[in-house]
Amino acid sequence: MYRKRDFARVALVALVIVTSVPAVALVDSRVRWWVWGVVLPAVVFLFWRLWRIAFVEDQEGVANPDEVLRRSDFERFPRDIETIGHAVRDRRFRSGRFANGYKKDEVDRFFDNVSKYLDGEGVGIAVSEIRGKEFTWAVRSSGYDQTEVMDLQRRVARDLGRILGNPTDRR
Rank of each mutant, 00 (worst) to 15 (best):
F98C: 09
E106M: 06
G120E: 11
G101C: 08
I125S: 01
D108W: 08
D112I: 07
G101I: 00
V127E: 00
V123S: 11
K103A: 08
E106N: 06
F110I: 05
K103C: 09
G124R: 05
G101N: 00
V114W: 00
D105W: 10
D108F: 07
V114M: 07
K103F: 04
Y117Q: 05
K103Q: 13
F111V: 04
V123M: 10
E106W: 05
N100H: 11
Y102T: 00
E121F: 14
G120H: 11
K116E: 13
K116S: 14
F110M: 06
K103P: 01
I125A: 02
V114I: 14
L118M: 13
N100Q: 10
E106G: 03
D105I: 10
F110S: 03
V114T: 06
V114E: 01
K116N: 13
F111C: 04
G101V: 03
V123N: 12
D105G: 13
S115L: 12
K104W: 05
Y102D: 00
S115E: 08
F98A: 10
I125L: 15
N113T: 07
F110D: 02
K116V: 03
N113C: 07
Y117V: 03
D119I: 04
G101P: 00
F111K: 01
V123R: 11
D112Q: 12
G120T: 15
V123I: 14
A126S: 15
E121L: 15
F110K: 00
E106C: 04
